[in-house]
Design a protein around this nucleic acid. Sequence first.
DNA 1: GTGAAAGCGCTAACAT
DNA 2: ATGTTAGCGCTTTCAC
Lengths: 343, 343
Amino acid sequence: MAKPGRPSTISDVAALASVSVGTASKALNGSGSLRPETRQRVMDAAARLGFRPNAAARALNEGRTYTVGMITTDSIGRFSIPILIGAEDALGAGRMSVFLCDARDDPIREEYYLRTLLGRRVDGIIVTGRRSQARPPIAADQPVPVVYAFISSADERDCSVVPDEVGGAAKAVEHLLAVGRRRIAHVTGPEHHHSAQVRAAAARARLTDDGLDFAVPALFGEWSEQWGRQAVSLLLASGTAFDAVFCGSDQIARGVADGLHAVGMRVPDDVALVGFDNWSVMALACRPPLTSVDMDLEGIGRVAANLLLAAINGEPAPGRHTHPCRLVVRESTAAPPGLAPRP
Amino acid sequence: MAKPGRPSTISDVAALASVSVGTASKALNGSGSLRPETRQRVMDAAARLGFRPNAAARALNEGRTYTVGMITTDSIGRFSIPILIGAEDALGAGRMSVFLCDARDDPIREEYYLRTLLGRRVDGIIVTGRRSQARPPIAADQPVPVVYAFISSADERDCSVVPDEVGGAAKAVEHLLAVGRRRIAHVTGPEHHHSAQVRAAAARARLTDDGLDFAVPALFGEWSEQWGRQAVSLLLASGTAFDAVFCGSDQIARGVADGLHAVGMRVPDDVALVGFDNWSVMALACRPPLTSVDMDLEGIGRVAANLLLAAINGEPAPGRHTHPCRLVVRESTAAPPGLAPRP
DNA sequence: GTGAAAGCGCTAACAT
DNA sequence: ATGTTAGCGCTTTCAC
C-alpha cells in the first residue's frame, strides 16, 4: 500500500548524474545552456529515481502555487457538479490543481475554508452554488482573484458568470411559437425564487413581443413533479384552452406530462411541453422525451475558470457575465402531424 | 477583486512585535517557553497583519502537506458525489484539504493526475468511481497510502471500502417477507454488471433460506425506467402471479410502478415494490414513494477517508471493507389494509 | 526567555 | 558549460 522511502530530491538526481543541483535544475527545466549529453544524463538519473519535483519547494520561491480553491456554498449538489467539472477541466488543462471545499451554506465553514485556502496560498478562488438570489461577496478585499460561477455576487464589481435565463426562456417561447402554438401556459417554482421570477417575466415579455400573453397567468408553486401534476388540474379548472406549457424546470414538466396523460391529453399532439435545466435523468425519462432549456453549466464552469486564470495573469474582467442557454429539442414539442410549423 | 500586496510573512510579524522570527514562531505555535506578554505581543502583531502561515513553507520542513488527492475514475457522477462529500467532510474535520481530480475513465488522465498529486506530495489518495467490476490497482507501489471507495481494487491487499450489497438485497427481501409477500419477482440491470449479479444472487439466496424462490426468474435488462415498464409486460406475460417486485435500482422500480399503474395494478396493495440506491429524486417522485436500499455512500466516503487518515498515521487497514446498507421504508411496501404483517 | 542559524527542495543570479 | 550561493517562509535545535 505505502512504502518506498522518502521521495527523491533534486540532490539525489544531481548526485546520481554527477552534477551540481544547479545543473540538474537547468537540465530538468530546459533552462540555461547545457551540453546535450549532460542534460540527458540528468534526465536519465531523474527517470531512474522516479523524481518528481516538490511542488511546495517550487511554490516557495515562485510565490505561486498553481492551485485554486473551489468553494460550493450550498452542499455539492446537482447544479454545482457540472460547474465543478467544467472548471476542473479548464483548470486541469492549465496545469492547475483544484482544492474542493464544501461550505454547506454555513458561513462558519465558509470562513474556515477561506482561511485555509489563503493559508495554502491558492492563486485564485471560484465560488459556486445554487442560486436563488445574488449572494453577499465572500469577504471584502481578498488578496487573490475571486470568480463567482452560477451564483452571482451582490457586488456588481465582482466577477460573476451566470446563465442567461432571460434568453433561455425567450428561446423556449420562440420555439413553441415556431411549432405553431399560441395558447401557452407557464408553470414554475416559488414566486420568491429569483429564477422563477426571471424566467416567467422573460417568457411573458417574449410573448408580448408577438402581441400575445400567457393563456393563463403564470402558476407559481414548487420545483417538484407533484406540483406539475397539481398544476394540470388548476389549468383545466381555469377553463381556458392551452396548447403548450412552458415549465420552470424539468421536474415540473415531467409532472405536467404525467398530469396531462392522466386526463387523456396527448403530448405533443394536444399540448407541447418545454422544460428547463435539461437534466437528462428527467428530460429523457419523461414520456415523451422533453424539450428543455440547457444552461450549459459545464460551460459556465469553464468560462469562470478561464476568467479566473485571466485574472491571475493580471487581466481581470470584473462584472456580471452572462452565458447563453441553448434549447435542446426533443419529442415533447414535435409539430403535430398535419400542422405546418411557422417558417 | 484582487489587491493587498503580498501576504505578510512571519518576519513581518516578528518585526512588528520586535522579536526574532524564532520567537514569533514559538509564540504562534504555542511551543517553547515564552513570557506570556511576549506571546501576546506576537499574537497581536499577527492579527493586525492578518498573518496566515504559508502552508508550502511548512510542508517543506515538516515533510507533510495535510493534503490528499481524490481521483474519480468515471466522470464525477451520481455515485461519486455523496462519496466525495463524505470524504471531504471527514478530511476537512481532520484539517486536511482535498485535491479533486476527474479522470473521466481515461487512463491517460488518471496517470497525469497521479503524477501531479505525487508532485504535490499529497499525504494520501482516495480513488472512487462507479463500480461494475473491481478495477486494476491505480499503479503498483505508491509512495503514499491509497484507499478505494465504492469501487474496489482488484488487488485484495489494497484497502477498499464497498457497500454490502449482499446484505442490502437480503434486507429488501426480508422486509417484503415481513409485510407478508411470498411471490417476489426481481427486475434488475444488465447481467454482466457486477452489482446486478450480486444483488440478484443475494436476494435469491435469502428466499431460499425460507424455502422460497423468485416467483419468476430474475429479469436482467438495463438500469432505466423504460426497462422497468417493459419488465412489467414480461412479468404479466409469464402468467405467474406475483405480489412484490424487488428492483435492482430506483429507476427500474419507478418504471415498474408506472407499468403496474398502467395496467391497473395498485402499489402496494396488489404489488409491493422495493428499489435500490435510495436516490431521493427517484424514490420520492415515485408514486407511491419508494421503499429502497440505501448504500450510505456518504458513510462510505467518510469511512474511506478515516481509513486513509489512519494509514497516513502508520496504521493501515488493508483488505476489502464492507459497509452496511440500510433499508428506507416508504409507502410502496406498506402492508395492505387487513393483512397482518408477519411478526 | 530569547536570538541566531541551519535546513526543508528548489530556482535563479552570479562565478568560474 | 557547469558549479556555487542566496533565498523563498517556516520550524527547530542550540547558544546565550
